[in-house]
């Protein structure tokens, strides 16, 4: 196993490309109209997966229920990462939590947006000196909107969501592409935290190739390190752990070999 000190430090992040790339390549005159419609639909319908292990979660119920009612803006909670558009992270993420957050983020379908709520996601907040807290969320995944405050009130949460809606409608909320284009940078930061043999169940590089989101910084020193440790992804064996059943099965196996 590679020691953590052998993981190269990720360099300064490359400048982020903002705006719709390859928009000029469209030849169909109706394509632009269609894009507008799709962007509008995307901005008016946001399914939200909230990862609420931090204390900021307490501000979400009033934002969702009758007091401020997010559903007016087309935002509704969803329960599985496959269905969600927004990953909403409230409060601090510990190193252990961050692993789950990254697994969840990679399972979501693009376009996907990350919102960091509370100061802790911005800079660690009051957990600045904690050894177990990941301080800047956007070192590990691209964040679309930060809503600062300790804690931000529901009005601020709604205001932040409105900002995201506006960004989506105008085509500026494409931070998710950045994860594919600069995967090496994000993976490097993840490796610095979790160890060199860190591997998720989603093959981000293959996805970047498949969806034509490959960028100059997708591959690098860290993805090379990943390839060294990478185990092929295979489905988990499904089995039922019932002692009685297991004993009976092993007995029948022995009988089978004896015959």
């Amino acid at each position: 196993m590679t020691h953590i000190d052998q993981v190269p430090t990720p360099g300064a992040p490359l400048p982020v490309e903002i705006g719709v790339k390859a928009g000029a390549a469209r030849t169909n005159p109706f394509a632009r109209v269609f894009d507008e419609l799709v962007r509008f639909a995307q901005s008016r319908s946001l399914f939200m997966l909230h990862y609420c292990t931090g204390c900021g979660a307490v501000e979400l119920p009033p934002a969702m229920t009758s007091r401020f009612d997010m559903e007016r803006l087309g935002i509704q909670p969803m329960v599985s990462p496959r269905q969600a558009d927004i990953l909403l992270i409230t409060g601090y993420v510990s190193v252990k939590t961050l692993k789950r957050v990254i697994l969840t983020y990679e399972q979501m379908n693009s376009p996907k947006y990350v919102i960091g709520i509370c100061s802790c996601t911005v800079n660690g907040g009051m957990y600045w000196q904690s050894y177990a807290t990941a301080k800047k969320l956007n070192d590990y995944m691209p964040v679309d909107i930060y809503i600062a405050g300790c804690m931000p009130r529901p009005e601020a949460v709604i205001e932040g969501l409105r900002g995201l809606i506006e960004n989506i409608r105008t085509g500026r909320a494409d931070a998710w592409k950045d994860y594919y284009r600069r995967y090496d940078y994000y993976l490097g930061n993840q490796q610095r935290l979790f160890g060199a043999d860190w591997q998720t169940s989603t093959d981000v590089i293959a996805e970047a190739r498949h969806y034509d989101l490959f960028g100059p910084a997708t591959l690098g020193a860290h993805t090379a390190l990943l390839e060294q440790h990478q185990r092929p992804l295979e489905a988990l064996e499904m089995r039922i752990e019932i002692p009685e059943l297991m004993r009976r099965r092993s007995r029948s196996d022995q009988d089978g070999t004896a015959q």
Partner: peptide
């Protein structure tokens, strides 16, 4: 309607 359009317009599909 927006929900259905948005879901069909997802750029990566699993």
């Amino acid at each position: 309607l927006w929900d259905i359009i948005k879901l069909h317009a997802k750029e990566t599909q699993t």
